[in-house]
């Protein structure tokens, strides 16, 4: 790995950290049963990026990221509002926000890039990602975001566990679900916004979903799941980047996703807890010995 250029090293660091952060917050999203929310919010971030650029008149990263975050927040609030105040269901609301915000973003993007001085390639990269051209500043941002995620996850670990598994009980026990929701959403948006630079809007969702689902196949323990998700996410980030670096000009984003999927496939087949091999062997044993009466306390899982 010594022959990697300076630039490639920055990219590697960034995608590693991004993968880890995405793995952790992605687990939270999974347990909240909102896996695709990240897809919706990634798309909803686009108008904010463009407006941020337009307002300042230059490609200033922090402004554009702030715009992206604001836009994503607005999107999530609208989804909530639609879902709670009308009979439109959550998946429909997500689809609406996803496509309408994105459409609006494209409208703005086209207008802005036709303005004098409009640097189209800079904004375009938010759509497909530009991991290959990340620089030191990006790594700083990624590190900040990753550390924030880690901090949030560790400091309130048992609160998260309670909040995610049984929000009603948590509320009864005095845990403010509004606060937890707000923190969760903030961190989610930050990770998304930091990440779409690297892998683009469409593939960000992959990084948030795939590693956390993969972790599920190895453990039932919440803490270990978080750690594994982070590891898988980081590995996917690194793996994908390495492939694209050595592959000369191959796009980074898609390979990160493919790397994540490879880890998922392995987990699916060989996972110690629910993998195919394990289930197959267990069923064989079940058929052989019949089963004892399950105790009253074991209720059927109602789906994950």
């Amino acid at each position: 790995m010594m022959d990697l250029s300076h630039n490639a090293q920055w990219v590697l660091m960034s995608t590693l950290l991004l993968g880890m952060a995405a793995g952790i917050i992605g687990s939270f999203a999974y347990w909240k049963r909102q896996s695709l929310m990240s897809d919706a919010l990634s798309h909803a971030a686009l108008p904010g990026v463009v407006i941020g650029y337009a307002v300042i008149g230059a490609k200033l990263l922090p402004v554009m990221l702030a715009g992206a975050a604001a836009s994503a927040f607005a999107g999530s609030l609208l989804i909530q509002w639609i879902r709670s105040s009308s009979r439109v269901k959550e998946d429909t609301a997500m689809g609406i926000i996803l496509s309408v915000f994105y459409g609006f973003g494209i409208m703005m993007l086209t207008i802005v890039t036709r303005m004098p001085g409009g640097n189209q390639s800079g904004l375009d990269s938010f759509i497909v990602g530009q991991a290959a051209s990340m620089v030191r500043q990006d790594v700083m941002i990624m590190t900040g975001v990753a550390l924030l995620v880690l901090l949030v996850a560790i400091v309130a670990f048992k609160e998260w566990k309670l909040f995610l598994f049984d929000p009603q009980f948590a509320r009864g026990a005095g845990l403010s679900s509004r606060l937890m929701d707000a923190v969760y959403l903030t961190v989610l948006v930050l990770v998304i916004v930091a990440g779409i630079q690297a892998v683009g809007v469409i593939l960000m969702a992959a990084l948030l979903i795939i590693p956390s689902v993969s972790a599920r196949y190895w453990t039932d323990h919440f803490g270990r799941m978080l750690i594994l998700s982070a590891l898988f996410g980081g590995a996917a980030g690194m793996g994908g980047t390495l492939i694209s670096v050595y592959g000369e000009g191959l796009p980074t984003g898609p390979f990160i996703v493919i790397a994540a999927f490879a880890l998922f496939a392995v987990s699916l087949v060989f996972g110690a807890k629910k993998g195919l091999v394990h289930t197959f062997l267990t069923q064989k044993a079940q058929k052989k010995h019949g089963m004892k009466l399950i105790p009253q306390q074991q209720l059927l899982e109602k789906g994950n």
């Binding site: 069923q283 019949g290 089963m291 899982e301």
Partner: peptide, 11 residues
């Protein structure tokens, strides 16, 4: 019959 991991109906 089984439901997920559990054998819910036994002969």
């Amino acid at each position: 019959a089984s439901y997920r991991k559990y054998q819910v109906l036994d002969r």
